[in-house]
Design a protein around this nucleic acid. Sequence first.
DNA 1: GGAAAAAATGTAAACGATTACAAGAGTATC
DNA 2: GATACTCTTGTAATCGTTTACATTTTTTCC
Lengths: 350, 350
Amino acid sequence: MITIKDVARAAGVSVATVSRVQNGSVLVKETTRRLVGEVVERLGYSPHGAARSLITSRTNTLGVLLPDLYGEFFSEVIRGIDQTAQRHGYHLLVSSSHDDRSAVETALRSMRGRVDGLIVMWPEMDETAVPNLAARFPVVLLSAPIGPDGFDVITVANYEGAYAMVCHLLDLGHRRIAIIKGVEGNADAAERLRGYRGALASAGLGSAAIEVAGEFNEASGFRATGELLHREVRPTAIFAANDAMAVGALSALREAGLRVPEDVALAGFDDIPMARYLDPALSSVHVDISALGEHATLRLLSAVRDKDRHEHRAETLPTTLVLRRSCGATVPASRPTARSGLATFANSPL
Amino acid sequence: MITIKDVARAAGVSVATVSRVQNGSVLVKETTRRLVGEVVERLGYSPHGAARSLITSRTNTLGVLLPDLYGEFFSEVIRGIDQTAQRHGYHLLVSSSHDDRSAVETALRSMRGRVDGLIVMWPEMDETAVPNLAARFPVVLLSAPIGPDGFDVITVANYEGAYAMVCHLLDLGHRRIAIIKGVEGNADAAERLRGYRGALASAGLGSAAIEVAGEFNEASGFRATGELLHREVRPTAIFAANDAMAVGALSALREAGLRVPEDVALAGFDDIPMARYLDPALSSVHVDISALGEHATLRLLSAVRDKDRHEHRAETLPTTLVLRRSCGATVPASRPTARSGLATFANSPL
DNA sequence: GGAAAAAATGTAAACGATTACAAGAGTATC
DNA sequence: GATACTCTTGTAATCGTTTACATTTTTTCC
């Protein structure tokens, strides 16, 4: 492999000069610059990243720790992170499947000296994990249920979104509204549940809650819906704590011969890209998922570059209600309006 | 930041000993091992990745270059890569948006000394780019239209898959079958088109081809379908060269008040996870997308570990026809069978 | 108890870059 | 022509590890 020494020798200059040319230093005569440039080109030299990182103590890389890489949600998060990082000249080191504490710690250790900062999405996290996270390099947390002591935290307006959606279902006249809950111990799931309960309570229906467990994936949404349909008193509306479960619910309802929204209304959370293409198109609480990644990256870059001046804060991304056919709002079936079918092309990231 | 020297000093041993303990060398007395271990723990030491890479010339990281990170297809590819890499103790450095030559070259340069090998998905690549790829580190190409001289290449049975799907549509009695083509210059797109033409030709319909341009995304599928519907002679079946375009086509057909499959049959390619949840569920040429990533990773790991013994080869992943409602096969609407709706849970990776 | 062998530890040279500092080469000024 | 600049280049230390080799300590065996 070609090193800087090879280039220096071939060009008849010192390694310092080659280094200076590579880094665009002004202290190089034009003729030398050209000479070295040619040799670099001819030999196909590219600097050794690790060596560079070692001496400069900057890697130009950001670490990303996600619970999983499966599904549209994480895909969108990564896309947001990647776009932003790339725009600022940073690479991405990704790692997934960190459900338990020790897996996260292992991943963290292995990142030292490889990244300048880290984005961690870990909704199951609790305060006891904090000490391990801090004091290595800047960290931005996504969906973590803790305050901004030591890191930036970015969350989604889960409570408000769920509250609004359930209120909407109430407005449509539903009184038996079920929720398919998210993963136990997951911060997003907990807040969405709280929003659901809050909305029911505000309508004086606090005791009418119908709650069934789910795990944020299609299969559990399918299963949970089957369970709901076997109860004596069937719900007239189902609010799934995320879209993946809503997709499973939709399959289960179709399978049971029930029409959506006529027999059972359905709503989800996240507004993943797929939501608008389902039939009926899925009403959901819209989250700008890639913006989540983008904000996280911007906070992290700020922390990385102004280590001193940067101050941590907690940020909450707003949610909006996206009403499509599945919840039985007044959107006509055959000719979808701006918010449901076709016109989504206008504001979709295609 | 804590370095190995700090640990050595605190433990009253040399850095060599600390290093040995860290790497589980057998040449360490048990008591020393414990002592050092405790100090490491107490100080929260973790070795510096770049320093380690520099001296060992192994990074334990694989690079991944994709055209994009958007959509279910790439998401699945990455998932396959990640799972496999992780299982073998490797990290992933990802980079996206490499449509043109120079972007790829830049990305390549910046990877030296940061990765042990590279997976490049670059369907628009041509032979002239080969010299730049080789001679740095092991490279595995996905969907590249070139032979295995210098790297491993993994492709999908595009021709066969498209051929089979179009034959199926012919079997169903369709005679005016349109194709929404993929990106110009894209190897996968070209092969799928060739399969379409081949199938028509085999039925003596070579001159009846109806071809319209597309770009592998929902919007272009929508647009292309609109175009098809405005022709004097409407096709009775549409074969989209990938599922994303089929999704757009489905929206356009629904929008035009046409029933699928009764008025127009529809089929896609890739069988992305979303396909089974559409209504009607989308018939598609199934590609085991995450297996694509997995195979690429395994080939690369082999190349990385047995640099000498490893020999390059070209591998083609088989495709299978997945018939759901959208193409008008004999799958009943209300009770989906094993291949279409519900039962997909059984073999899906949920 | 002492020599030889085995086991444990330490010393120091790498790895490939960056960069402070020193030094050499021009060039303007008197 | 010497002095004091500026501009360009080179020398060598440094980053944090690993590891060959040297050295010390412990064990074995007679």
